[in-house]
Design a binder for these strands. Structure first.
Length: 653
DNA sequence: GCGGATCAC
DNA sequence: TATGGTGATCCGC
């Protein structure tokens, strides 16, 4: 909690202290920065803006912290000790399955975009520089960081902090090129390495270390040297028993350095005990704030100590703690396109923007041969409030016409509201505000509770265009993309799953607490806020479709306002014999008779879904043979995401 | 399935 | 003048 002193005149002498941004959060290369000064300048540059007001509004939710504190205070000693026992028991369970035998390496390129730009233009060397624009900075080099300039900061504020800052526009082609060069090196150490983004990757170097009889640190040194030789770029590395820790470690001696955490329990525990929770992936500004200001938790060790409070306050149900599995093979689950533009309430203009975005989205989908059936319209009002409206269709779509058609409906449904609100606020609101339209088309929003064992992964191994996926999407997805697909059932990987979430029970708990907390907040937000909005912006559109051939249950989208909404006509039950469900798996056989994939014996549900997949596949073939298809679809007979698998397949559920 | 929110890069 | 774009996940409905 900020201690904002109030003077006798009622003025707060340091109002910037209560404006919380991420800009003062510790980041490599910013150790000597005058945080107070940065915070003051950011505040002064932001104060009074719509953005600022929105941030203040969001911050107001934090009053919820008082409620949680009160809850906390009400807890009796007996309650706390009870919950502490629960927590300790869980920790013990996790510890029993802990495995510290593997050696993971996390590589992180140093100020990647900025470094690449400096290679292109050596005259930038030694000068403060940022990649991005006056609106937003992607990356700042280390010279600029000394001034407090950093990624995600608007350029105009950065320039205030560092008047001599040089701006270089982003050029993803360049970054992709260099990223590919680094990946060629990574591949030599782990052919299955996981690319987390253009400039980050995880490598399992256990076998390399064993075969060569060297320690992880040596391999890291060598790899970094080779990366430099191949690209002229420096990187940092972290070596640890699991990925989560390796990632934390790679940040320690950045730039151009590395840190090794030995495969030793004591070393790991010691390391973690003083580790600030914010260093852990998944704990961001909000979670840190809550844990710190409600429970006084700053380090992972304190998470263990306060386990009782955490359980008492945040464990609604028993679910959660053990579910931090990370799927080993990830599929894209959605694809989207969004653009920010000057705020407007001109409907014709908004529809034009929508059409443009539909076009862009369609192009992106075509590139990958994707289709989807849930369309989400996302919008940001002139006051920076974000909203979304979604529709799930009965068929998969991919043409810009269809996307636009349904998106227009969604937008239309919003317009009366916005007009009304615009009428209210619009007259006095300035038309120069910004607006944002966005579009999301997702393939399968329902992931159920599959955790790391989604049967979707099964198809990944046959994925023919994994490569495309890598190159065209590495544009900063933090998604883990396997360079070469791992066998999802490989025992090595399953082991990793376990140690990833078990080794650090502390971390897990932190994450869980975070989840619970953020949800509490979300709930309050929903009921508390809502009224204020300016809708100078635009929205989405959606639409849908479905298989008319199969007489599957039909859905209609009708609302009281005559617009898109949902109403399900339950209609026909599954048109297939239940026997079909296990058609491709003979009794007690774990191997699919159609594609040969094998699954563990206890993966009953997964086998059923796998059968559903083949069923959907069959339906799709049928549909294709009847309907005329676009050339794109012909090129990709079985679009990835399309794995409409559960698409028409949903029928059965 | 929907909508809000958080997080990461 | 001016605060991004893409993707994922979680939770309560």
């Amino acid at each position: 909690m900020e201690k904002s002193e109030i003077t006798s005149s009622g003025e707060n002498p340091r109002p910037w202290q209560s404006y919380h941004t991420v800009y003062t959060n510790a980041k490599a290369g910013m150790e000597g920065v005058d945080k107070e000064k940065v915070q003051r300048i950011v505040y002064e540059m932001s104060k009074g803006s719509k953005y600022f007001e929105n941030e203040e509004r969001k911050e107001a939710y934090m009053t919820e912290i008082e409620t949680m504190r009160a809850q906390c205070a009400k807890l009796k000693a007996a309650d706390v000790s009870h919950y502490q026992m629960v927590a300790d028991k869980r920790i013990l369970e996790l510890e029993s399955t802990r495995d510290l035998s593997r050696i993971w390496l996390h590589v992180d390129m140093d100020a990647f975009y900025a470094a690449v730009e400096t290679l292109s233009d050596p005259s930038l060397t030694g000068k403060p520089m940022a990649v991005g624009s006056m609106s937003m900075i992607s990356t700042a080099n280390y010279e600029a960081r000394k001034f407090g300039v950093r990624a995600a900061m608007p350029g105009f504020i950065a320039r205030k902090l560092c008047p001599d800052l040089i701006f270089v526009p982003t050029d993803f082609n360049k970054y992709t090129h260099y990223s590919d060069l680094t990946r060629k090196v990574f591949q030599k150490y782990d052919p299955h390495f996981m690319a987390a983004s253009l400039d980050e990757a995880y490598l399992d170097i256990t076998s390399v270390c064993k075969e060569r009889g060297v320690a992880g640190g040596e391999v890291a040194e060598e790899l970094r040297t080779r990366v430099y030789e191949e690209t002229g770029l420096t990187c940092s590395a972290g070596v640890a028993p699991n990925r989560l820790l390796a990632k934390v470690c790679s940040d320690i001696n950045k730039p151009n350095g590395q840190f090794v955490l030995p495969n030793d329990r004591m070393a790991v525990m010691t390391f973690i005990s003083s580790l600030p929770i914010r260093k852990i992936g998944g704990i961001g500004k909000v979670t840190e704030h809550i844990l710190r200001d409600v429970l006084g938790i700053n380090t992972c060790e304190e998470i263990l100590q306060k386990g009782g409070f955490l359980c008492a306050l945040f464990s609604h149900s028993t679910a959660g703690l053990g579910r931090t599995d990370t799927p080993q093979v990830k599929f894209r689950k959605s694809i989207s396109s969004e653009r920010t533009f000057s705020a407007t309430n001109d409907e014709a203009l908004l529809y034009q923007k929508l059409a443009d975005i539909a076009e862009m989205l369609c192009r992106d989908m075509q590139k990958e041969g994707l289709r989807g059936r849930t369309l989400t319209l996302k919008l940001k009002t002139a006051s920076f409030e974000v909203r979304s409206r979604a529709v799930t269709l009965q068929k998969y779509i991919c043409s810009s016409e269809e996307i636009l058609k349904y998106a227009s409906k969604l937008l239309k449904a919003e317009l009366p509201i916005s007009l009304r609100l615009i009428d209210k606020a619009g007259a006095s609101s300035d038309p120069t505000q910004r607006t944002l339209t966005n579009f999301v088309l997702s393939g399968d929003a329902s992931r159920k509770t599959m955790g790391g064992r989604s049967s979707l992964g099964l198809y990944c191994s046959d994925e023919p265009f994994m490569d495309d996926l890598e190159t065209s999407f590495s544009t900063d997805s933090h998604d883990i993309n396997h360079y070469e697909t791992r066998d999802p059932w490989d025992s090595t990987n399953k082991q990793d799953l376990e140690d990833h979430h078990c080794t650090f029970s502390n971390n897990i708990e932190a994450e869980e607490a975070h989840e619970s907390l953020s949800n509490d907040i979300a709930g309050n937000v929903n009921t508390a806020d809502t009224v204020e909005c300016n809708f100078n912006s635009c929205h989405t559109v959606v639409f849908e479709s479905k298989d008319a051939e199969t007489s599957l249950p039909q859905k209609l989208y009708v609302s009281n306002t005559n617009l898109v909404n949902k109403e399900v006509i339950t209609g026909n039950e599954a048109v297939f014999s239940p026997d079909w469900q296990y058609h491709c798996f003979k009794e007690d056989d774990c191997k699919c008779s159609l594609c040969g994939i094998e699954m563990p014996p206890d993966f009953v549900e997964e086998r059923r879904e796998h059968s559903d997949f083949h069923l959907a596949e069959r339906l799709q073939e049928k549909e294709s043979s009847v309907n005329s298809r676009t050339s794109i679809q012909r090129q990709s007979p079985l679009p990835l995401n399309t794995i409409p698998t559960y698409g028409p397949g949903l029928i059965i559920r």
